[in-house]
Amino acid sequence: MEQEMVCLKDKIGEMLCEFAREDNRIYAIDSNLAKSTTTLKFEKEFPERFVEAGIAEASALSIAAGLAAEGQIPFYVNFAIFVAGTAWTQIRQAAYANLNVKMIGTYSGMDNGKDGASHHANEDLALIRSIPNVKVLVPSNVKEMREAIKIAIEYNGPVYIRVTRDNVPNVEFDTNAQIGKANIVEDLGNDFALMYEGTSASVAYKSFEILKEKGYKGKIVNIFSVKPLDIELINRLSNEVKGIVTIENHSIIGGLGGAIAEVLAQQPNHAPIAYVGVKDVFTESGTATEVKEKYGLNVENVIKKVEELFR
């Protein structure tokens, strides 16, 4: 799986422009970070449909709600911690009304390494997926990213898209990008299933390659839709493989691992599940790679969890 590395965050502005050329209901709302999130491109091309809300995230989200109430398709694009954290009750009230609000949270997990724990979003999946009506999508490559935005535009209701800022390998696979669908990226056998969300794709692929070299034959599964989950696929795999290891650029509380555990726990028989992600701690400054390495989102951890299944 030698692939070019891509930063999906850098595609946000240009992709929104692509769709906005075809659909004049599309807006971008910013909180003074358009340069970082790349919605600056949108501002240049569609100044009248770009709403700079200033550094006022709560109000920015409610402005998106108001635009949606008038039939527009607003994308609120910001760092994940500001979207899911700062504007949480605003999202909740918009979701209660089932308004057509789209959110893109980037600099997700520990991607904003050097800014430190204050800016790491290791809780956004937990915060967002507990809100009724909101769909949560996490693209893992360029193709899925475009699909996620397209799905968000076509679907009538609130959607949260988690977009990596750290580079991920642009692994192309036969993706079935849909709300409620997960994709098996590679299937070599039933020793294990790695289940990852898109922003932790690097660690997932590297781990899978090493496990392959070590002679284990497992599966790697991309959970494109974190909410709703592909319950059918997850339940099926949980009866086929020896163990499931979830990989997430997020706290292991309430995120991908938690969501999958909620599904498995309802089955009488299922493979054991182990979590790779951030334990219940605040992180610190460093490069994204260093922070992820130190706080548990690393290849060694994945290998260890898989090998423990065979002890």
Partner: peptide
């Protein structure tokens, strides 16, 4: 016209509506 209840949010919602109407 708007789901409300959590205080403080309605004026922002109205701002979004007003921008859309103007456009």
């Amino acid at each position: 016209d708007a789901t409300t209840g959590l205080l403080g949010q309605g004026l922002s919602i109205a701002v979004g509506m007003a921008i859309a109407k103007r456009n």
